[in-house]
Design a protein around this nucleic acid. Structure first.
Lengths: 139, 139
DNA sequence: ATAATTGTATTAATACATTGATACAATTTG
DNA sequence: CAAATTGTATCAATGTATTAATACAATTAT
């Protein structure tokens, strides 16, 4: 399996968190699809020259979040199930993230109008990407 | 001065970070306006039953970000200046935050359409709030 | 069956972040 | 000018997070 991932031991960000982010991005970007198998804990540990526990921790937390499924003896896969949280909870989570954007935007002196323009631009790019993913070219 | 702030020592989130968030929210929400003086390091430390250094750290980091201005012997105030970062950098920062929203939204199985609906609702509420702040009723 | 491969659990070493105690420095107030 | 008030700096104590070493358990492959 091709290896999307790369860790920086001196970035300040814990390596297991770096990996989590990269997996989430790979799934959201279509590079990893539901059902896909991830590298084994040991294989990836060797490739990234890090302790297997570091990989396991990232996998574990993403399983807890419902994004991955780990099966002992078989491997770890991108989940094909619905997320664990109820729709309302998921909306609450997104609203909270959006609030952070609004507050940060205000403190950066970005007007609501400019912010909305940026939003529309990013969302459009995102939708375009989703279309391409559906056609099959993941990343 | 009325005290907007409250800290939870056992929340897992460091208290100086809790305070930073609350100050940023208070500024963005209009409860604190440019030029307003914040409680002194000691005064707030007593009110929140925490070490003065904890308050000072939050103030310091927000000053480094350009949100506050501290003057020895005088006090700490909400900045009236423009932010330190260039416009392009500020836009980059917001785009990065928006990207996080998009990725998280995808992994939560929220459609782009639904996400946009939530965005428009939140933005509308935010604009409404900004209008009220301009009229003077901060918080 | 046995070996190999996978994820899991336990424990420990280490570094770092957080908070506090205390003293210092600049400005304002009387 | 002296006292009070403000932010700043330094140092130490402590807890916690991160990573690693190692052994265990389940499944698959031979």
């Amino acid at each position: 399996m091709k290896n999307f991932f790369h860790l920086n031991a001196r970035s300040g960000v814990p390596m297991y968190l770096q990996l989590k982010e990269q997996i989430k991005t790979a799934v959201a970007g279509g590079a990893l699809r539901p059902g896909d198998q991830l590298p084994s804990v040991r294989e990836l540990a060797v490739a990234l020259t890090v302790n297997p526990n570091t990989i396991a921790r990232a996998y574990n937390e993403l399983e807890r979040d419902g994004l991955l499924i780990a099966e002992q003896g078989r491997g770890t896969f991108v989940s094909e199930k619905e997320p664990l949280l109820k729709e309302e909870e998921r909306h609450t989570q997104i609203k909270s993230l959006i609030n952070k954007v609004l507050i940060e935007s205000y403190n950066l002196r970005i007007t609501a109008e400019k912010l909305n323009a940026i939003w529309e631009e990013r969302l459009k790019a995102w939708k375009e990407r989703l279309r391409n993913v559906q056609k099959g070219d993941g990343e």
